[in-house]
């Protein structure tokens, strides 16, 4: 059952997002390639990983903010694209990933509210040392199950969407990629804004631009 294995992967990578480690194996680039490898299509995994990484470049697990969940969204997207052929599979899977990122983000938020009800505080009855260990470990296990469930439901519904519409997709590979890059360009712009804006950074940005264009011509 590939859905079972992929859900376990989604659960584990989801843990890396906030709860345990944060080695950033939860980022789309890594999660995409891992999922692609598990579904037998590393190329599709890398392509979707790249696109979602670009979209989520400015979305990081900072503090108490709500953010789309990268790990589960990427596993879902790659798992939805891998079984199908054609440019439409990648495009539709990215759309599924963007939507499911919001679902994942909402489930993270719900999990945090659930933790509110169980974390011990000074003055609570009982043995606080035993309780803090129990609550902490159960919360981690619950987060794994949450990630796995979000992944499983995402794959089932996402594959239905991709299967239903993949043959109707009219654009070729190059145009499909260009369409997806329009949305990604917004993130790139936001990042430049975060880093000080064009006016302050024009020298560095232009230098990089030249380097990128020249490099891509020679390599």
């Amino acid at each position: 059952m590939d859905i079972l294995r992929l859900s376990a992967l989604g659960g584990l990578l989801g843990l890396d997002g906030t709860a345990v480690g944060q080695f950033m194996v939860s980022r789309p680039l890594v999660a995409g390639v891992l999922t692609g490898w598990m579904s037998g299509d590393v190329g599709v995994g890398l392509a979707i990983g790249m696109l979602l990484e670009l979209y989520l470049l400015v979305s990081v697990p900072s503090g108490g903010a709500r953010f789309p969940e990268a790990a589960t969204a990427t596993v879902v997207a790659v798992a939805c694209a891998a079984p199908f052929e054609g440019a439409g599979a990648v495009v539709l899977a990215v759309a599924v990933g963007l939507v499911w990122g919001q679902v994942g983000g909402a489930s993270v938020d719900a999990g945090r509210h659930l933790n509110d009800r169980f974390v011990p505080e000074p003055g609570d009855a009982g043995d606080p040392a035993a309780r803090v260990t129990r609550v902490h470990l159960v919360a981690i296990l619950a987060d794994f199950l949450r990630g796995a469930t979000v992944t499983a439901t995402g794959i089932v519904s996402g594959r239905f969407v991709v299967r239903s519409f993949v043959d109707r997709w009219p654009l070729d590979g190059s145009a499909s990629m260009a369409l997806l890059l329009i949305g990604g360009a917004v993130s790139a712009g936001i990042l430049l804004n975060d880093l000080g804006g064009f006016r302050r950074r024009k020298v560095w940005f232009t230098a990089g631009l030249a380097l990128g264009i020249v490099g891509s011509r020679f390599l």
């Binding site: 790139a188 990042l191 950074r201 560095w204 940005f205 990089g208 631009l209 990128g212 264009i213 490099g215």
Partner: peptide, 13 residues
Amino acid sequence: VLLLGALVGAVVG
């Protein structure tokens, strides 16, 4: 910023 420029350049060109 330089790396961002490089990615944009590579994607465009």
